[in-house]
Design a protein around this nucleic acid. Sequence first.
DNA 1: ATAGAGTCCGTACCCCACTACGGAGTCAAG
DNA 2: CTTGACTCCGTAGTGGGGTACGGACTCTAT
Lengths: 135, 135
Amino acid sequence: MLTISRLAREAGVNVETIRYYQRRGLLAEPVKPLGGIRHYSHADVSRVLFIKAAQRIGFTLDETAQLLNLDDGMHCQEARAIAEHKLEMVREKLADLQRIEAALSQLVGRCEASRGKVSCPLIDSLQPTRDDESA
Amino acid sequence: MLTISRLAREAGVNVETIRYYQRRGLLAEPVKPLGGIRHYSHADVSRVLFIKAAQRIGFTLDETAQLLNLDDGMHCQEARAIAEHKLEMVREKLADLQRIEAALSQLVGRCEASRGKVSCPLIDSLQPTRDDESA
DNA sequence: ATAGAGTCCGTACCCCACTACGGAGTCAAG
DNA sequence: CTTGACTCCGTAGTGGGGTACGGACTCTAT
């Protein structure tokens, strides 16, 4: 069982961040033993680490809250709809990242050989294939 | 050749956003023909689309500016150092996304079958493998 | 020649995700 | 039983990434 400051330290965030996540509903506030001090578990550490990881890959706190709800368990119909939507987002991000990865690693490779100026077709790597809108 | 508002429309952003990116140095300001109006190219559209895609996968504008520098071309030594660093970030994000993808698609699969409550080990999917810190 | 739409530029404002601060309470060590 | 570190809670401030606004200018179309 951890105090709030240990939870924060183990998760690599500020104490205030924990309290902020509680206000936002991403983290439950443990019951306070009548005028005392709240206790946290290692599951809370994992939860905060997850939130931080989700943010790094571009999810907002609201989106992350939805992911956490899926983890917490909910009824199938709802869960499935949300999961499918998130899955779509995830796959788009994944595809973009893979294209960036390819472009960057090519650049590194070219740099190994050449000794002048080099550039990297990064911008092109992420252009939407325009089958749609022909304006 | 485009006006600023067409550039903005084609890239799906606000005119003010274009000007903001110029101030931040992510987009060059085309020369203004003496008391006239600036013109933009389709390359600028691509550039803005790239910025937006980079943001979706969790890069800040400063990081995105670095990626754009790589695209613009720079000297090998510098380029390579930056590219390798970004590549590392990209691969971490990729790994996290792949883990989330696996967890989500499992959840969707389970939902197909069951009809009660389901949950999804999302949090666990992103836990850092703790070889380090043994406190 | 003038109306209306668009541009230019500066400044101010907004939302999100924190982060800091301050006063009151708690708790363990000396 | 006091001191010092920590907790609790509310409220205020910060930085990133825009967004809005307003006045002067410019560029067509009529």
